[in-house]
């Protein structure tokens, strides 16, 4: 039997009087790649924001699988602050890239390793042995990550100087630097051509294996979602209107209506 990594239990969220998400439920199995699709404004990014603690749901709970001394249990993370949730093992990327533009590629990664650094303010001020060893460690780890993502030639470049494709990779590398168990990707293929999209698909499959990840992603690009996801949830106006395997979803009349009824999506 597969373990559930993330459980979203009857989550509803309001903005003012507007219902952005209503009664969202999900049990995400370990190691899976699931997709979340739906027209613009359907509430997809809101789901990500709820999982990562940017918003606190009006109703409902969110649980995440944790391990303590070899024992697994589901921890209620509903009201945790975003940085705490990151430290529990959930990382994400953003719809509109949110890289630190005036910092180097290396620093972008090192910041994501930040909460695992084990020296104190005192150690930093004294620049003692402990500080140097820790710095050495995280730098080495960062360099390895950059190499894996073929960004090592850019180590000391300011992030704002990178081309779009590399920024996308950097953002994923940065998310991985937090050592996540669950990775949330918000429209990773946005703005990519077919060749880049194919490469991205390969990369996602590869990082799942390499980093032992569970992945949950939002995407508009149908070929991408259908090609990579094992299970897809479809949202419209904050409601889950369908879910199932890519096959099931693409034949679902409500999905077809939601998409073709108003606007056509590529």
């Amino acid at each position: 039997m597969q373990n559930t990594v993330l459980k979203i239990d009857h989550v509803t969220h309001y903005f003012g009087g507007l219902r952005a998400v209503s009664d969202f439920n999900m049990e995400l199995p370990e190691g899976a790649i699931w997709g979340l699709i739906g027209p613009n404004g359907a509430g997809k990014t809101t789901i990500f924001n709820l999982i990562t603690g940017v918003y606190i749901p009006t109703k409902g709970k969110i649980y995440f699988r944790q391990e303590r001394k070899g024992e697994f249990y589901m921890e209620d993370i509903t009201r945790y602050k975003p940085h705490t949730i990151v430290s529990k093992g959930i990382a994400r990327t953003f719809q509109n890239l949110r890289i630190f533009p005036n910092l180097t590629v290396l620093d972008n990664i090192r910041i994501a390793e930040h909460f695992r650094v084990k020296y104190s303010l005192y150690d930093a001020v004294m620049r003692n042995k402990k500080f140097k060893e820790e710095e050495e460690k995280i730098k080495e780890e960062a360099m390895n990550l950059l190499k894996l993502f073929n960004l090592h030639s850019r180590t000391y470049t300011l992030a704002k100087g990178l081309p779009y494709g590399e920024l996308r990779r950097l953002e994923i590398a940065r998310a991985l630097a937090t050592h996540p168990k669950l990775l949330l990707l918000d429209e990773p293929a946005a703005g990519m051509n077919p060749k880049e999209t194919q490469e991205l698909m390969d990369m996602i499959l590869w990082i799942r294996k390499e980093f032992n990840l569970t992945i949950f992603l939002i995407e508009h690009h149908m070929k991408f979602v259908m090609g990579i996801c094992e299970h897809i949830k479809v949202m419209d106006f904050g409601e889950t209107i369908a879910e199932g395997t890519p096959q099931e979803v693409s034949n679902n009349p409500r999905v077809i209506e939601a998409y073709l009824g108003r606007k056509k999506y590529a």
Binding site: T52, K81, H83, V86, R98, I111, F115
Partner: peptide
């Protein structure tokens, strides 16, 4: 926001 979401308190 991005800082908080890569784990910075």
């Amino acid at each position: 926001v991005a800082s908080e979401l890569v784990g910075v308190h």
